[in-house]
Nucleic acid binder design. Structure first.
Length: 483
RNA sequence: GACCCCAUCGUCUAGUCCGGUCCAGGACGUCACCCUUUCAAGGUGAAAACACGGGUUCGAAUCCCGUUGGGGUCGCCA
């Protein structure tokens, strides 16, 4: 754990001189790593890797009673699961409160900040009357030029920034372009609370500066904050980093992704059976593109990613497209990994640890299963036709298929198969088709009941493949169970 | 409400900066057909968009203005 790394306090060379890009992801540990945060982290990470720079992680746990250890762990877990690694030690904002205060005091001394004795109650009424009068609900600068000797007794003052009252603050955003804010829109924000603790506005600026952040890539919802933060940088005579406000992700209904609907943690996506590379690819394409490319490896993403290609408008989250991407990654994922992923799911579902024979079948049948699965959950579900030991459970529709006639046909087939020894897919196909011909039956009349009896279902991989994967003993055994 | 941001198929987007090659391209989804013992996968094809209104220009998805719509921010939260 770190704690005020000295290096951060050493004055940094001017921006032009340190050509290395430094980005950061600065989540608040109040809940899990939600999908929007994941994308912000991804973009920061990608940009740092693309430029050969650094990607830092800062936990903004400036207490507030809401930060929890669980949330911190969940965020770190989420990042790790997504394959997003950070450079150096994690910076905990709460451990830097002294430095934040130090900066505020420096501003006080330089005259760029001042004490204000307005209580929250006074401020509250100030806002209310302003609103009632049709004015903006802002701090009116009561104590900006008032003599501190007039300070009321028994009130601890806050420290406010002496912000410029005229002119405008301009942000040259790498994504949004030039954003101009009239300084009259910005009031003198609080830097230090009455209890001496720093506010978010001060903390971010000080931390970003001390950490040498060159590019602040974050959600659009911070765009308005950028102007205010720029004022703090300027008051301290610091270089203002490059801002890049990326659009927010909206739910399928177009509304903001809120706690209420759809704002899930990345762990939820993992539990729904999505592969981290699919999530990464999907998130990457939400608001960013590289021509017509859709399937983009992480290596390519790092090579191609640039801020200039990030869109300005918000994008809606679409599970259908995520499913498609996930399916594509499942198709090419390494077999051992997939097997490892589904084993615990099958076990949890059936309460049985797959037997050695079952695992063998699973490995043999995996390729026929993956093209039929959009998620790991589906894969595990589909895999049960191989993992289950006899006797099988039958789906309603499969059971219906096994009427007396069908059972009779299967019994005949079983007898015919008993002497068959070449248990390869091709040979079995020839054998079963041959058998159907001698019985003068359409293949479907045999194949469908066969599928039902062998898998307990009406949909499965090719039936001859299933037979081959099952092996002779298991195939005949399952046949015997029902025929 | 004020301020700020945004606006191409249902969705993600290419094209917009440096107007003409765009009666707008790709992907997902949808539909049809092919393949096929089932379900997928795969293949082929189809329907599907420049929000609206004004300009500027020989010419605008591309530039300007307005309207509408959507979003964000207005805390001694982060």
């Amino acid at each position: 754990m770190l704690h005020t790394r000295r290096t951060f306090l050493v004055p940094l060379p001017p921006r032009q001189a340190r050509m290395t890009v430094v980005t950061r992801f600065a989540p608040t540990p109040t809940r899990f790593l939600h999908i929007g945060g994941a994308r912000t982290a991804l973009f920061n990470w990608l940009y740092a890797r693309h430029t050969g720079g650094q990607f830092l992680l800062r936990i903004e746990d400036t207490d507030r009673k809401r930060s929890t250890e669980e949330a911190k762990a969940a965020i770190i877990d989420g990042l790790e699961w997504l394959g997003i690694d950070w450079d150096g030690d994690i910076v905990y904002q709460s451990e830097r409160a002294d430095r934040h205060a130090e900066v505020a005091h420096a501003m006080l001394e330089a005259g760029n900040a001042y004490h204000c004795w307005c209580t929250p109650e006074v401020l509250q009424t100030m806002r209310e009357t302003a609103k009632a009068d049709g004015r903006q609900p802002r701090y009116d600068g009561t104590w900006r030029d008032r003599d501190p000797s007039e300070a009321p007794d028994g009130v601890d003052p806050v420290v406010r920034l002496r912000a410029p009252r005229e002119g405008e603050t301009v942000i040259d955003d790498a994504v949004q372009g030039k954003v101009v804010t009239a300084n009259t829109q910005l009031d003198d924000m609080i830097l230090l609370r009455a209890d001496g603790t720093p506010t978010y506005m001060l903390s971010v600026v000080v931390d970003d500066h001390d950490m040498g952040i060159t590019h602040i890539i974050r959600g659009d919802d911070h765009l308005t904050n950028a102007a205010r933060q720029a004022q703090i940088y300027r008051a301290m005579g610091w270089d203002v980093p490059t801002f890049a406000h990326i659009p927010l992700i909206h739910g399928a209904d177009g509304a903001k992704l809120s706690k209420r609907h759809g704002a899930l943690g990345v762990d939820a996506y993992r539990d729904m059976g999505y592969l981290p590379e699919a999530i990464r690819n999907y998130l990457l394409r939400l608001g960013w593109s590289h021509g017509d490319d859709e399937i983009i490896s992480t290596e390519q993403a790092i090579e191609w990613f640039d801020l200039g290609d990030v869109n300005k408008g918000a994008a809606r989250f679409d599970f259908a497209k995520l499913d498609n991407l996930n399916a594509q990654y499942i198709k090419t994922a390494e077999a051992g990994r997939l097997l490892g992923l589904i084993a615990p799911l099958i076990e949890a579902d059936t309460g049985v640890t797959p037997s050695a024979a079952a695992r063998k079948r699973l490995a043999a049948g995996l390729d026929g299963l993956r093209s039929r699965s959009k998620t790991i959950l589906e894969l595990a579900e589909n895999a049960k036709i191989y993992s289950s030991d006899r006797p099988l459970e039958f789906e309603e529709k499969a059971a219906v298929l096994l009427d007396p006639d069908a059972r009779g046909r299967l019994a005949a087939l079983r007898t015919a198969l008993e002497d068959h020894d070449d248990w390869t897919e091709e040979a079995l196909e020839t054998a079963v088709k041959g058998h159907a011909e001698t019985q003068d039956l359409k293949l479907g009349l045999i194949a469908q009941p066969l599928r039902a009896v062998l898998t307990g279902r009406t949909a499965s991989p090719g039936i001859f493949e299933v037979m081959a994967v099952l092996g002779k003993d298991e195939t005949l055994g399952r046949l015997a169970d029902a025929a």
